[in-house]
């Protein structure tokens, strides 16, 4: 019988405590971010898709077309090509495609690059209805960035 009264009285008390907690929360300010109106800032290490880094001196990509990123990538989503312009020693990048549909943002490519030629971008609000939109031409992107 005492268990019965425990249930009735203790139970009612626990319900009242619960109600008092939610009532207190009711008057506290909201904690959510109003996303489309307030845009979050990405942290320094945020992993967006990769992008090429420009060499400040020459204005060309730092990439020397060694292909380490391509070989290191677990999903084989990087394809690049380069050729030697006449009269120069080093190869120049002519194509750098990232297939973002299979990229898992692991960072293996960035780690395997010994020349610091690629980095994570801060782009996160990517949306599209077509798969082709996710095959990024990173060289073009670099040019567009100016």
């Amino acid at each position: 019988m005492s268990e019965y009264w425990n249930d009735v009285i203790g139970g009612s008390k626990s319900l009242l405590i619960g109600l008092s907690i939610t009532a207190r929360e009711f008057f506290k300010p909201v904690v959510t971010e109003q996303y489309p109106w307030v845009v979050p800032e990405m942290t320094e290490r945020f992993r967006g898709h990769i992008e090429l880094i420009k060499d400040e001196k020459t204005g060309k990509p730092k990439c020397i077309v060694c292909g380490m990123c391509m070989r290191g990538c677990p999903s084989g989503c990087i394809s690049l090509a380069g050729k030697k312009p006449e009269g120069e020693k080093k190869k120049a990048l002519t194509k750098y495609h990232l297939d973002f549909t299979t990229c898992s943002l692991c960072g293996t490519c960035i780690e395997s690059c010994n020349f610091g030629a690629i980095q994570f971008s801060k782009d996160y609000n990517l949306a599209s209805t077509r798969k082709e939109d996710y095959i990024f031409d990173l060289l073009k992107r670099l040019e567009e960035q100016g």
């Binding site: 939610t22 929360e25 009711f26 506290k28 300010p29 909201v30 904690v31 959510t32 109003q34």
Partner: peptide, 13 residues
């Protein structure tokens, strides 16, 4: 709205 406030959201806006 009430649920939103209790859960510290804004509800429909």
């Amino acid at each position: 709205k009430g649920a939103g406030r209790i859960q510290r959201r804004t509800g429909p806006m």
